[in-house]
Design a protein around this nucleic acid. Structure first.
Length: 397
DNA sequence: GTTAGGG
DNA sequence: CCCTAAC
């Protein structure tokens, strides 16, 4: 199958997929890692350093099935590979082609049970369930195998925070000039008559202390209650000032030691003002408390940690890779990873957004690292939460 | 106690 | 970084 094979010598640096390098038939199963990487490059227009054959194959096939309109090409996906469209009737069960696992694939060649590539493209018949008739290439099992794709789409619903509710309510009551009651009345009148039966959540507290509105949060369907702002104590004092002096002293000294140890590693950046509450920065703005720019080595550690343990296992990464960095909490790691993701996906394609994307980055992250971040993100998007080996069910406890 | 996401 | 709902 590799006869024509991938042109291993081709060094395409274009940023766009170049299918011209995909000559003839390609049987992904038979390709070496290097060849798979070449194919990856041809498919996605960029290089990859991932050596995981399985991943590469899956990505390539996914990329092809997703982005390539096969009706306009002479290529067709078949038997775990891309082949030239032949004259023989192609009973092409995409489901089987997309599933790279040998065990699954071994069930092979029954085209009757599941929708076929052929069927869908040809007829675009609406399915019996009437749920949705899709005229794009549907790969059955695709979704179930990569449930992560769906999971990523549906973020877990999050109730608006108390503060959000309060602040929003406060703002609105300001807008309506203390005519809270009347505005509510207006709202009620404007409701369709069928709505007079308010759901429990819509009732208005007689004392006027709490009201509930129907607004939803960002279209999430989460309803935002309307409450009058209750005066709270000031948001927050500096953590240290609230601590008893005794324990404060101890923590402070402990921390100080670590800080000073770290200072040597960092390129002698001056952090003497590190633990200070809020420092007026050069531009007159207030600087955050406890701000410590991420160093390159920290970023690298983080990336490696994500590679090893997976994104989301922040406490684990914190414990195992950042044991000596006491000032980086697992939340910090998570935050930094989020920023890295943003940077890697925003900056690589076009270097335009540099201005804005750099605004939040304390240090310039070298492109190779961002590439790695990107790869990890893509890789882990394919292999959902499932671990590649280390089972933590037994590892814990 | 952790994780995810908005601020 | 901070804050905090969900887990």
């Amino acid at each position: 199958m590799v006869e024509n094979g991938t042109s291993t010598s081709a060094v395409v640096t274009s940023s766009k997929p170049d299918f011209s390098t995909l000559k003839g038939e390609i049987h992904l199963d038979n390709l070496t890692v290097k060849e798979l990487q070449e194919t990856f490059k041809a498919t996605f227009g960029r290089e990859t350093s991932v050596k995981d054959k399985q991943w590469l194959k899956r990505r390539i096939l996914m990329g092809l099935t997703n982005s390539c309109d096969f009706s306009t090409t002479t290529l067709v996906i078949k038997d775990n590979g891309v082949v030239k469209k032949g004259k023989e009737e192609i009973c092409n069960n995409v489901e089987h082609n997309i599933s790279m696992d040998p065990e699954v694939g071994s069930t092979s060649e029954n085209c009757e049970n599941s929708p076929t590539f052929h069927d869908i493209r040809k007829e675009n018949h609406s399915n019996a369930t009437g749920m949705e008739s899709q005229n794009y290439l549907v790969v059955d099992n695709y979704g179930s195998e990569n449930t992560n794709t769906e999971q990523r789409a549906t973020k877990r619903a999050r109730k608006p925070t108390k503060r959000y509710i309060e602040e929003l309510s406060e703002g609105e009551s300001r807008d309506s000039c203390s005519k809270l009651i009347s505005s509510v009345g207006h709202r009620a009148y404007s409701q369709p008559s069928t709505n007079m039966h308010a759901t429990p959540g819509q009732k208005v507290g007689l004392d006027g202390r709490w009201l509930v509105r129907r607004d939803s949060l960002g279209g999430s369907g989460v309803q935002v209650p309307y409450v009058s702002r209750i005066r709270r104590s000031r948001p927050r004092e500096n953590f240290m000032t609230l601590m008893p002096v005794t324990s404060s002293d101890k923590l402070y000294s402990e921390r100080k030691v670590e800080l000073e140890k770290e200072l040597k590693n960092l390129n002698s950046y001056e952090y003497s003002d590190d633990d200070v509450v809020t420092m007026p920065a050069a531009n007159g703005r207030l600087r955050r408390k406890h701000h410590r720019p991420w160093t390159l080595s920290e970023v690298v550690k983080l990336v490696e940690g994500v590679a090893k343990y997976g994104a989301g296992r922040w406490s684990e990464i914190k414990r195992l890779a950042f044991a000596s960095y006491s000032y980086r909490t697992s939340v910090d790691l998570k935050d930094k990873w989020r920023n890295l993701l943003r940077a890697s996906f925003a900056q690589l394609p076009a270097e335009k957004g540099m201005q804005s994307s750099r605004k939040h980055a304390s240090i310039p992250i070298p492109a190779p690292i961002l590439l790695r971040v990107r790869e990890l993100a893509e890789m882990q998007a394919q292999v959902p939460a499932g671990d590649t080996g280390s089972d933590r069910n037994s590892a814990h406890k």
